[in-house]
């Protein structure tokens, strides 16, 4: 028999974007410590369904920490207290018996609340559409290894490309800035020869889109890096700024 804990949950419930939400209080008894946070919410939802109460809506997909679908704020920290972890990979062993957990959706004006803990992160897609790609104007894509790339460059680009677009950076930023997300995408392509070609147009267009969507400005709090499930560095934000300066000066 594995260890179990009792918890008090304070969950944000909101019908839709138009209505105002509030906190609902639930007691969870004998939660096995080996299950994940989302599995704990699954149990809560089963109980709520039996009671005839509408279950708590939350996003999830792969449940192995690689897709970026899940995410909410636990006690003021996006994805909860465990570093480099999404809520689906956050296990209940990181909590203590008797803890009160305040669960809120990712809050930012561009992230509209769909229901309860589900937010619409479509603004991220719009930023990508503004330039987060390499144009292939004709024919097939080139062969995989036709352009040789040094190991260090490949590693650096991959570190930036590890971003899963979950939105925790925006959620944790005191200014609700999307600088870490946008810069990771810019930086990823910037470090590869294929992406260098469109660098100037890309950085300008993606930064403008980021502002247009209503995200705040980055004030270098670095909270985004600390909560990022993939540990994306604020070095990417510096890369984006350098790239933008270059696009103006040149």
């Amino acid at each position: 028999m594995s260890k179990s804990i009792n918890l008090k949950l304070q969950v944000w419930r909101q019908e839709n974007e138009e209505t105002s939400g509030d906190f609902h209080y639930y007691s969870m008894n004998e939660v096995p410590v080996d299950i994940s946070f989302l599995e704990m919410l699954d149990i809560l939802n089963e109980n709520l369904t039996k009671e005839g109460v509408e279950p708590v809506s939350f996003d999830s997909d792969c449940r192995e920490g690689i897709c970026g679908t899940c995410g909410f704020v636990i006690n003021g920290i996006a994805h909860g207290p465990q570093a480099k972890t999404t809520v689906c990979q956050l296990h209940m062993r990181h909590f203590n018996d008797g803890d009160t957990l305040v669960i809120e959706p990712f809050r930012a004006t561009p992230f509209k609340i769909v229901r309860d803990l589900v937010v619409d992160r479509g603004s991220f897609d719009k930023i990508i559409q503004a330039g987060g790609y390499v144009s292939i104007n004709t024919g097939n894509g080139p062969d995989a290894n036709s352009i040789l790339i040094g190991k260090d460059d490949a590693e650096e680009a991959f570190d930036s490309a590890a971003c899963i677009g979950c939105g925790a950076c925006v959620a944790s930023c005191p200014n609700a800035s999307a600088a870490l997300f946008t810069s990771a995408k810019i930086s990823h392509l910037l470090q590869l020869p294929q992406g260098k070609v469109e660098e100037r147009a890309r950085v300008k267009s993606m930064v403008d889109k980021m502002d247009e969507e209503g995200f705040g400005a980055c004030s270098n709090h670095g909270e985004c890096e600390a909560v990022c499930p993939k540990g994306i560095s604020i070095k990417n934000i510096a890369n984006m700024r350098r790239s933008l300066i270059k696009s103006i000066v040149k």
Partner: peptide, 10 residues
């Protein structure tokens, strides 16, 4: 409702 400091690299 609750805001906190993530610590670590923050």
């Amino acid at each position: 409702a609750v805001s906190s400091f993530a610590g670590g690299k923050s």
